[in-house]
Write a protein that binds this DNA or RNA. Structure first.
Lengths: 198, 198
DNA sequence: TATCAATAAACGATCGGTCTATTATTGTAT
DNA sequence: ATACAATAATAGACCGATCGTTTATTGATA
């Protein structure tokens, strides 16, 4: 039995990676943030690379739950559920003063081009998330809420990517405007105007 | 008169920042890439931060020209010019094996949250570029080529952000698919279907 | 007493940045 | 034109700090 809760360390690491990036976050910073002694890190993790891979998995688990909950809210139309999901995330970024990015977005731009294990790991998460979102988009298309001239899986992938781009810009502008633009424009775009659904 | 061409150093730095990121690119790496000794760097630049700010300016200049050229191609409709511009960039990323990001996109996610001078500098570039693109979007809207229910400046900002998100994903997937999706989906979205313009 | 997780201390490498010394280049006076 | 001081530019050794990682030792358990 480990004395230190590994999930706690992973979450502190995720927090710091999101705030300061991968290469600008030292292992010492993570350890200091959760009062773990300096020597203990390599008892639980093989390397920093191993740590970030496990952090990605933990992130998938935590955000994935939130994700499923939002999309399964049967009081809303499929279109509204998707909109609501992004709205909730926008609120979160706003509450964090526009200084924190998405773990996957940060790692994608910073290290996905140089560390293969990281890009492979992120790719898997996006694949699963996109298929999850796509299943709800498809239902929305079948209900006539969402435009159906674009494949659901393509639309899902695109929406995630576009949102990440807006998050990057948000950090620059220190404002929710890029996120709001993302939401308003894409929600206008994907709405099937022939039906009048909220 | 300087023996070393400052623009050459800036371009090598931009290349490395785009490939490996800001914190993962040491000043030594930049100097080695252009055979410049250490002492000369600090004769020309105050610090790494000063260097990256000047690199952003140089990047604005270089890409800005390319940008203006593409959008001023009078053989194409406004809609086609915009599409063509992004197409040219997609080809460039493809030629670079999907491992290189946009300087501004990289710096936005990696350091815009922590180094104010960088976020301010990037913000200025985006502001000028967005206004440039918006002026052409506006003309496209007036010609009935582009949907006009969204403000041109908003659309311009949104397109840049969305493209950057696709570039991040491209690095993860090592594929042009995210970029192609960005182009196909957005070009479908912004096209005014009432008129039949290429 | 044997085992092994947990931890402290130290490792070599590299970071951004400074320092002093040397070499080109320039402006000025003759 | 020539001599010479002044300054710009080049060169690389060097600095303390910090990087990711390794090693040696401790402390608890069986």
């Amino acid at each position: 039995m480990a004395k230190h809760d590994l999930n706690n360390i992973l979450e502190k690491g995720i927090e710091l990676f999101r705030l300061n990036g991968y290469h600008n976050t030292g292992i010492r910073d993570i350890l200091k943030a959760c009062d773990m002694p300096k020597g203990s890190f390599y008892h639980s993790f093989e390397s920093k690379e191993d740590f970030v891979i496990k952090a990605i998995s933990h992130f998938e688990e935590v955000i994935g739950k939130d994700f499923e909950k939002n999309l399964s809210d049967e009081s809303l139309s499929y279109y509204e559920r998707i909109k609501n999901h992004f709205k909730i995330h926008i609120k979160w970024y706003t509450d964090n003063d526009f200084k924190v990015g998405c773990l996957l977005g940060n790692l994608s731009t910073e290290v996905a081009g140089t560390i293969d294990s990281v890009s492979n790991s992120i790719s898997g998460v996006y694949d699963r998330w996109s298929r999850g979102l796509a299943s709800f988009i498809k239902k929305g298309q079948e209900q006539g809420e969402i435009v159906d001239d674009i494949e659901a899986l393509h639309l899902a992938n695109y929406l995630f990517d576009s949102f990440n781009g807006a998050v990057g810009r948000m950090k620059v502008e220190r404002s929710s405007e890029p996120l709001d633009l993302f939401l308003n424009i894409n929600m206008t775009f994907i709405k099937n105007k022939e039906k009048n659904v909220n």
